[in-house]
């Protein structure tokens, strides 16, 4: 019953980034080898999308709306955390979408959070959709900001905008997009509202037409700032390819053993910075204000 149907070698995908030259405009950014380790077979797909979000934000409604219930469920390899996988086509591209467990944070050590964190970090999805609840933005931004520390290829899905409207809450999505440095799309997944715009934003980030400059959390304490600078510089020197050295430094300072192991084993060094260079006239730059 499990999703172990593909046990062949992963070489069958000609679009794998290992084969492609760096700087290709439309090449997928994902790391097919690492994805396969996480149980995701990319043979018939062009892009892989991760779906992250707090519990009770309508994340699975978004997932169902995007995949039209064409999904299959299974467990993460070796874990008892369920995952739903599905797919959709948009334009000429086929997107595989992986529903991550709903969590409040990525910094604790619960199994769900570890699974979600590892997928975003080591799976290097082409785009991570972060579903946030428009009626409880502050609480949901906690997770969003943590995801944006790890990956700069993200789209915020500002869901439950209908509920917010009903409560008289308005969210300025443009200002939020400017502040966060990633596209923000208001949706009401239950009514199917805004999903087209979401798909469009996802495809633009996936193909490199939109380049995100995500907001990074500022820390007040000077001691932490200087420690962070020292360590980030060292990591950048040793692993120039790692896209999120600052986040890795943060985790090391927090004593995160999984990350320390990844450094020791060289797993971290396998991650590649993915910066597709799209044609300049198409690029929409999102700068944090």
């Amino acid at each position: 019953m499990n999703d172990k149907k593909n046990l062949q070698s992963p070489i069958s995908n000609p679009a794998s980034p290992a084969a492609a030259a760096a700087g290709c405009a439309t090449c997928p950014a994902h790391n097919a080898g690492n994805l396969l380790k996480l149980g995701v077979d990319m043979t018939d797909w062009d892009y892989v999308i991760a779906l992250a979000g707090n519990p009770n934000t309508g994340k699975s409604t978004v997932f169902n709306a995007l995949t039209g219930l064409r999904q299959h469920t299974g467990n993460w390899p070796g874990k008892t955390v369920t995952r739903a996988e599905g797919g959709y086509s948009y334009g000429d591209q086929r997107y595989k979408i992986v529903d991550l467990p709903g969590t409040y944070s990525l910094l604790s050590t619960s199994l769900d959070e570890e699974v979600a964190r590892d997928f975003i970090l080591f799976g290097q999805p082409d785009v991570t959709i972060i579903v946030v609840d428009a009626t409880r933005l502050e609480r949901n931004l906690n997770l969003a900001l943590q995801v944006l520390e790890i990956t700069d290829r993200a789209v915020i899905c500002l869901n439950l905008i209908d509920e917010a409207r009903r409560h008289g809450i308005t969210v300025d999505d443009r200002r939020l997009a400017r502040d966060l440095g990633v596209p923000v799309v208001p949706t009401a997944a239950r009514q199917g509202e805004g999903l087209d715009a979401l798909l469009q934003a996802v495809s633009e980030v996936a193909t490199g037409q939109t380049i995100c400059k995500p907001h990074r959390v500022k820390t007040e304490s000077p001691a932490i700032q200087s420690a962070l600078q020292t360590l980030t510089a060292q990591i950048q020197q040793a692993f120039p390819e790692v896209p999120n050295a600052r986040w890795v430094a943060l985790r090391l300072l927090d004593g995160d053993q999984r990350i320390a192991d990844a450094i020791r084993s060289g797993e971290l060094g396998d991650l590649k910075r993915q910066e597709p260079e799209a044609k300049q006239d198409l690029v929409i730059h999102l700068e944090p204000a």
Binding site: S105, L107, S108, N142
Partner: peptide, 8 residues
């Protein structure tokens, strides 16, 4: 403790 902080 971590859970409390995650909850805000």
């Amino acid at each position: 403790r971590r859970r409390f902080m995650d909850l805000g």
